[in-house]
Design a protein around this nucleic acid. Structure first.
Lengths: 236, 236
DNA sequence: GCGCACATTATTGTATACAATGCTTGCCCA
DNA sequence: TGGGCAAGCATTGTATACAATAATGTGCGC
């Protein structure tokens, strides 16, 4: 729920600084869907004028991570059921082929980077930092697109992953366990072996798994609002 | 090359107004890749402050339609060879399936709308308004995504189509004829018949056709710059 | 005449002031 | 007591003023 200023360094605070800080906070579930992002509040936190903050917010709105309601302000997005379905459908269209391509192009160095990624993920889990683990597991997918050397898809997946994080915040089923790192591990192996077909298939089933771990049957908007109101940004 | 203010109506000019006006001008090849978009210039044209113009430009930059160089200004984007390849690869991943879905869901009314689209396209061609014809043929693809009732994909295709327009401006081969409307006509028929498999296949080959009508072998950035400089926005 | 340094100018980046909108609160009246 | 209306307040939208940067032009020295 807090927006840490994190690194103190003397680098000038740009719109991108603010934008990625907020994005990361949302991604890590430190900001719940529906939370109001006041402009004055943000400019205080980051020590810049509202001009910069507004630029950052517009950028996030373009990624569907927040929603800007005219004369009302910016709020962390609350993806609808339909939108949630759509996001995963698009991911299922883009990512398997991308994983295939990554498997074809991956170098030993790339694989090492992915391994490192998983390691960090485990570290975060052990430290009980569930938010950071979620963030890293998302970045894993972006990293694969980078290995596939496809900037356009990488950008798209970056956004889709962030949106997925919001979807998970809203629709994740309590019952379903987090068996993610297994799937990621299998993917690394396939990519390391340059086994394109297997990588594609694994990514496909991984996404289907994720998709089915969501409760996308109902949970109307009203109830969402009520819940966030009652639990005050940190429930769930 | 000119940015017409078009409709005079008394509606207030918002960032979206400016954004879509510029977007449409680019889409119609009235603004060539590389053209500088000065902030003062635009605020004069549309009678709003630079604040609004900047918001509009940021929006266009997010869509990769223009490029904002820090302290230098905004320029109509010049997609690289790699980017051009990537854009069409993504379209080939997204659009065939979307066409399939559209064929499954299309109503008689939808088909009529598509027909109307084609008619307008022909009218534009007959009137010699090549720019408008290009614009309409792009919107045709967006319309199919709308029929498929997939907002997320529709948004993506909208952007990809605009980027494609820039790619066409830079890489279109003089030799290749414009046999587009035939492909679109065939697609309408498949969709009207609710023939999902055929629609998917037709869209696939249509995109491959488009892709192969581009000269994506070479044509280095330097030459592009020089050319636009020397020919002043209307060559090619 | 050529090239480099410096002054000038034009344009973008940022902050702030003001306007407009919507929300809240408290009052009035039924 | 409860609903509705109005005034005040908080917040966002827009315009403008100022600062910083890059582009341009000028003059000097070689």
């Amino acid at each position: 729920m807090t927006l840490t200023t994190s690194h103190s360094s003397s680098a000038p605070v740009t719109a991108d600084t603010v934008s990625s800080a907020v994005s990361q906070a949302i991604h890590q579930h430190r900001l719940a869907p529906g939370t109001k992002l006041g402009e004055d509040e943000l400019s205080d936190i980051y020590g810049v004028s509202r001009t910069i903050v507004r630029t950052a917010l517009q950028s996030l709105a373009h990624q569907h991570i927040i929603e800007i309601k005219r004369n009302r302000g910016a709020f962390v997005a609350q993806p609808s059921l339909t939108e949630a379905q759509e996001v995963f459908e698009v991911r299922e269209l883009l990512e398997p082929r991308t994983a295939r391509s990554a498997a074809q192009k991956a170098t030993a160095n790339d694989v090492a980077l992915l391994q490192d990624h998983i390691t960090q993920e485990h570290t975060a889990i052990d430290a009980g930092d569930r938010g950071r683990a979620l963030y890293l597991s998302g970045k894993f997918h972006v990293e694969i697109a980078r290995i596939a050397q496809h900037q356009t898809i990488a950008d798209m997946i970056n956004v889709l992953v962030a949106r997925s994080s919001l979807i998970i915040a809203l629709y994740w089923r309590r019952e379903s366990a987090i068996c993610e790192s297994q799937a990621h591990h299998a993917l690394i192996n396939a990519i390391g072996d340059n086994d394109a077909a297997r990588a594609e298939e694994l990514m496909q089933s991984h996404l289907v798994d994720l998709h089915s771990a969501l409760n996308l049957k109902e949970l109307p908007a009203v109830e969402q609002d009520l819940r966030t109101m009652l639990l005050g940004n940190q429930g769930r």
